[in-house]
């Protein structure tokens, strides 16, 4: 073996400090999901569920994208904790894609239907949605980031984007319970755009913060 490599091995193995191995990714993802469920549940209780939201749960065009947004958050969380350690199987990266596709496709179909029926007359601004999604996502994202502090993601941009996607998808699903937007077009315009923007911010934050220690 190369002498430099031998010297390096001597240096690394001398005075070895014990380390606590990270828990399995699924266990860590489960812990974050439980924490998120408690926080988001508290927010829902604080604001109170709108009767309109409960009434619309019977409509598949409303229920399916709402459930898909929650599943997107869960799948993205699982993917993040797997990607946060080296050697994750490649399929993990794609886990959030099916629920995300269902979420976008069902909202997209509803949006198209509404635009064909009513045109763009019912569109309005809803900055409140953006505000709530950001205000909910950022603290949750910081907790998720804190849980990744000992991790070593080899794909920091993807990990950051998926982490932000996870928390923003949860924030969007929570917001719908007490601030039901009436139409798929509005949901697509305000919720999904906010989630996309959060994922982009997460990608940039991941690039800067999720670095290997050496």
């Amino acid at each position: 073996m190369n002498r430099d490599t031998e010297k390096l091995i001597d240096a690394l193995s001398g005075n070895l400090r014990p380390v606590r191995p990270l828990d399995p990714p699924m266990a860590r993802a489960g812990r974050f999901l439980a924490f998120a469920a408690v926080c988001l549940g508290a927010i829902v209780l604080l604001y109170g569920v709108k009767p309109l939201f409960l009434a619309r749960l019977d409509e598949p065009a409303f229920l399916v994208p709402w459930l898909a947004s929650i599943l997107t958050g869960i799948a993205a969380t699982i993917a993040v904790f797997h990607l946060a350690v080296p050697g994750a199987p490649r399929f993990v990266f794609w886990l959030p894609v099916p629920p995300l596709a269902v979420w976008l496709a069902t909202l997209g179909a509803g949006c198209l239907e509404e635009l064909l029926a009513h045109g763009a007359a019912h569109l309005e601004t809803s900055w409140h949605c953006v505000q709530v999604i950001v205000q909910t996502s950022v603290p949750l994202g910081l907790v998720l980031g804190w849980m990744l502090r000992r991790a070593a993601p080899l794909a920091p941009v993807a990990t950051g984007a998926l982490a932000a996607l996870a928390v923003a998808a949860f924030a969007s699903a929570t917001l719908e319970t007490f601030h039901s937007l009436q139409t798929a077009t509005m949901l697509l315009l305000w919720h999904v755009t906010s989630v996309g923007a959060m994922a982009a911010i997460g990608a940039a934050a991941g690039k800067r913060t999720l670095r290997l220690p050496v």
Binding site: T5, L8, P21, L22, P86, G87, A88, A152, L212, P213
Partner: peptide, 23 residues
């Protein structure tokens, strides 16, 4: 070697080591 030393806590003993090293 330096990197794997710094992140040796990310290896989960129950899992195969080859994908971890390769990555």
């Amino acid at each position: 070697l330096i990197t794997l030393h710094a992140i040796r806590h990310t290896y989960e003993p129950a899992r195969p080591i080859k994908p971890w090293l390769t990555a």
